[in-house]
Design a protein around this nucleic acid. Structure first.
Lengths: 138, 138
DNA sequence: TTAATATCCTACCAAATTGGTAGGGAAAAT
DNA sequence: ATTTTCCCTACCAATTTGGTAGGATATTAA
């Protein structure tokens, strides 16, 4: 399951996506609008900035805004930045790979199944973007 | 990611699947063979039993064994018993549903995307079984 | 050049979860 | 009655999660 932090990140990003192209948005506005604890949100947005998804501006008129269009930010990227691996096992992760001890990977059936599951999940998460979240048809 | 406990469960179940139809297997055999801490394994197997995946026999000649054929135990079931929800959000889970506060589910785009992701993942995890783990082709 | 406005950074903290261990109880077989 | 084996309850340390506190730094405006 995604952490609460990741859910906050999605809500904040969705809000910024809705206001894409309208200049910087205050952390406090997002916090109020989306009911996310201010100081917690602060470091979430900062992490997203360091991951190059957001840009920020200090001082009056400052705030956060998407660095690229909502159509170019897919859900897998967001999850990886805030939540970590998408695969169900470390030995199957593309971005957070870790070898498992006591397991011959080339013959491990568990690994093979989890790889198939990962690919199925990724196919969706890498295709869907912030834009899809906003304009999800009813 | 799946917990270490869940990975132990899969390893143990795979072992029992390999020995399906050959009578009870000792916890201690599985523990030795698969390098799983004995006491920890004890309660994993017990949970699997309570979930109706295993049967047990006490006393000499006792042990654990699969209740049904390896082809009838799919990976989603195992994950749900030991690890919990498969969906990425509680409000999207079929078996562990929880309403999210501050969110109109019928219009929530995040929810819609996570539902699609869940279905893609489940399609694999509910189709693949212990049998597939054992006989995964190279 | 000073004050105001916002983000950024470091450090801390409580509660929950994870990954176990300890020790004995209960049932079955001999 | 004894041995074998699973079953049950309780505990525990380490890690992760979900925050909070307080000030440092950059930008703007007067």
């Amino acid at each position: 399951m995604l952490s609460k932090k990741t859910r906050y990140a999605f809500r904040a990003l969705a809000y910024l996506a809705e206001n894409y192209g309208e200049g910087p948005i205050l952390i406090s506005s997002i916090s109020n609008e989306k009911k996310i604890p201010l100081k917690f949100l602060e470091n979430i947005l900062n992490e997203l900035k360091k991951a190059d998804l957001l840009e920020s501006k200090k001082g009056k008129g400052g705030g956060y805004f998407l660095k690229v269009s909502p159509k170019k930010i897919n859900l897998a990227t967001v999850i990886r930045v805030i939540n970590g691996p998408i695969a169900l096992l470390p030995c199957v992760s593309l971005n957070f790979y870790e070898k498992c001890d006591d397991c011959d990977e080339t013959h491990c059936g568990i690994r093979k199944m989890m790889t198939i599951a990962r690919d199925a999940t990724l196919k969706i998460l890498e295709k869907k973007t912030l834009h899809d979240i906003i304009f999800a048809t009813v």
